[in-house]
């Protein structure tokens, strides 16, 4: 149990610190890399919850695909960091105050006399041959089929929105229309003019 606690607190600390770094570091590439670290350490925490499938998906999909694309975009854009930081100092005191109030209240509730976190029983550990992926697969298309379909619709809307907001048809581009080119006839291209011979 002690080793588990140590591992948990280690990865929890890494998650929190790297998440904080994402918003505080100056270089956007570093921020993206810190986000990768955040995902990695949260994947470890999921692993400790015996959610292997989610942990692996997080690494494969988010770290492997999404963040790489994100890094591409960050490297290609010329982001003016100084302008992004203009409001940072101005709103810092208010932000710190709010964070402290939130922290104080959470601390009071979670560690106070009536704290319920300890009183709740820890879930029983699954047997070694329990397959997380199998369990998910069995409910995903059966019990949660409606929710699953809606999640798909949300992705569809995201695609429609992205295309509707970014697609620009340029009217000044010149392009060929092969079917029109095929239908061309001699009279379209060649004009025979009868004129008086030069004297």
């Amino acid at each position: 149990m002690l080793i588990e606690s140590i591992i948990f607190y280690f990865f929890a600390a890494v998650t929190v610190l790297s998440a904080a770094s994402v918003v505080t570091v100056r270089n956007p590439v570093h921020a993206a890399l810190f986000l990768v670290l955040t995902f990695f350490s949260s994947a470890f925490i999921w692993m400790m919850l015996e959610a292997e499938f989610l942990a692996i998906t997080l690494v494969l999909v988010y770290v492997g695909a999404v963040m790489v694309l994100f890094l591409f975009v960050v490297m290609m854009l010329d982001i003016n960091i100084a302008r992004l930081r203009e409001g940072f100092i101005k709103f810092l005191p208010v932000g710190i105050l709010l964070a402290l109030v939130m922290f104080g209240m959470l601390f009071y509730v979670l560690t106070g006399d009536q704290s319920a976190v300890e009183s709740m029983a820890a879930p029983a550990a699954k047997a070694a041959d329990f397959s997380n992926t199998r369990a998910l697969g069995q409910v995903l298309y059966t019990e949660y089929v409606f929710a699953f379909e809606i999640a798909a619709v949300i992705l569809l809307v995201a695609i429609i929105a992205a295309i509707a907001l970014t697609l620009r048809r340029r009217t000044d581009t010149r392009y060929q229309n092969p079917s029109q080119q095929m239908k061309v006839q001699k009279k379209d291209r060649l004009r025979i003019i009868k004129m008086e011979a030069e004297k």
Binding site: I154, V157, I160, A161, A164, L165
Partner: peptide, 8 residues
């Protein structure tokens, strides 16, 4: 789903 459509 509602919010995403509205943002766009």
């Amino acid at each position: 789903l509602l919010s995403l459509s509205l943002y766009a």
